[in-house]
Nucleic acid binder design. Structure first.
Lengths: 243, 243
DNA sequence: CGTTACGTTGAAAGCTTTCAAGCATCGTGG
DNA sequence: CCACGATGCTTGAAAGCTTTCAACGTAACG
């Protein structure tokens, strides 16, 4: 198993807004980490119902969490970006309640579930971060649920796009008002709880308004217009942790 | 501030399926707890945007978490029942992302946010539980989001009712197939992301199917039928912690 | 150059919402 | 003890948003 990325040179550390580790914590994390994983776009990294031996932190690339209904319908619950931790649920509970799939090629750090307890016992700071991460995921879900439950189709789409932009921006993955957008309309539709056809129409409407411009896999947006449509409230959280 | 409930006699401890504390943990929790709070139905316990000094554990009664949109629409994110912890978000983040309101008269234990750090440092077992609780809340939200995004109105309603029954059941709040149901149709509508009128029609449909029978504030249900309609998958988690 | 994945459109069908009333229950004040 | 206002539940009908069904266009790929 290749070790291309030593923890001391973790690319995530360079991202502004991610906190730094103490020497002690870094030491532990180096031992906690058991390897690296690269996943091609489309790969399933964690499967619903499984009980994985591992936890992962996304180092690069995009992925998404989703659940399936028996009739085949899929709900995308959230997207995962660099710095996000995945698989915690499978470590604390009997089994994963959702699947995680790579949206683009991804690179992840692999951690051993069985040593999670040591983390809690020996590194309260990291344990705190873990809880923080779980609470933040909950917050994002609250926001999505509000969106899917109460916003109109156009508002929902505007909201999601603005949301993804802000997450990408925090990680330095944007370039002015444009960024690489690896989703297809099917992904958006499944995240928004809309049909593919309607999603297409709604996106066209946003384009005509001049709120977004999507070509190839690049999205340029007018954040002001999107926020106006979406009734957007910025996330107050800043300096966030990762593991 | 009255101390009607000493931790040694915590009524939650009697509930089957809630784990027991070590003597050491119990000691800490007694110190962590700063008092008790009783709230009348309709009271707002925590407000979106605030930064409360407290955390709460529900001892008795029902409540719900919700968020509002500028246009006044409300999304109920989840319901809170005995054993649930609320306000963690406000402790880890700059401010609460949602409000919590009492649905029935409630009784809660109050904890001091400022001592949360001691908990992490001195009681990894409790810290672990806290993370577990956050992860479980996330799981419930995933489930709801799936529901609101992908299920039909009737499936959604069936799902939510079945879900609430199972949560009540775990706490010994049910009586055979019936239980006290403090929600109004407006609450259900706001949780399901449906209009009040449509919610009413959908509930009538479930009644006619014989899946539910709702009179006064009591609900009797045919779990088999509900599960069939809702495409229900039981939660694998059993022995859950609380604080 | 055929196949496949993804995006786009039109039209009809269908599910939900909105608008409008009407009814019932409950607690309070006269 | 009864009237009255407030809250919650029901229904009908029309309007409106979304989905479904069907095709068609395009770009990437082997």
């Amino acid at each position: 198993m290749p070790r291309k990325i030593p923890c001391e040179k973790c690319p995530l550390a360079k991202i502004e807004g991610f906190r730094d580790f103490t020497a002690d914590e870094l030491e532990f994390i180096k031992a906690f980490k058991t390897g690296e994983l690269t996943a091609d776009a489309g790969t399933t990294i964690l499967a619903e119902g499984s009980h994985s031996e591992h936890l992962y932190t996304v180092v690069s690339g995009w992925g998404f969490r989703h659940k399936l209904l028996e009739n085949g319908r899929r709900q995308i619950l959230n997207f995962v970006l660099p710095g996000d931790l995945i698989g915690l649920q499978g470590s604390l509970s009997a089994e994963m309640g959702h699947s995680v799939e790579a949206l683009s090629d991804m690179m992840l750090c692999v951690f051993q579930r069985s040593r999670l307890w040591e983390l809690f016992r020996g590194h309260p700071g990291l344990a705190f971060d873990l809880t923080w991460l779980a609470a933040r995921e909950e917050r994002m879900l609250d926001e999505h649920l509000l969106s899917v439950g109460q916003r109109s189709a156009e508002q929902r789409a505007a909201y999601l796009i603005r949301f993804l932009f802000s997450r990408a921006e925090l990680r330095g993955m944007t370039n002015g008002r444009t960024f690489e957008f690896p989703l297809t309309q099917r992904h958006l539709a499944d995240a928004l709880g809309l049909s593919l056809v309607h999603t297409n129409r709604v996106l066209n409407r946003l384009s005509r308004r001049g709120a977004i411009k999507w070509q190839a896999h690049t999205l340029r947006l007018d954040t002001r217009k999107l926020e106006e449509v979406a009734d957007w409230v910025p996330d107050p959280d800043a300096r966030r942790p990762y593991i």
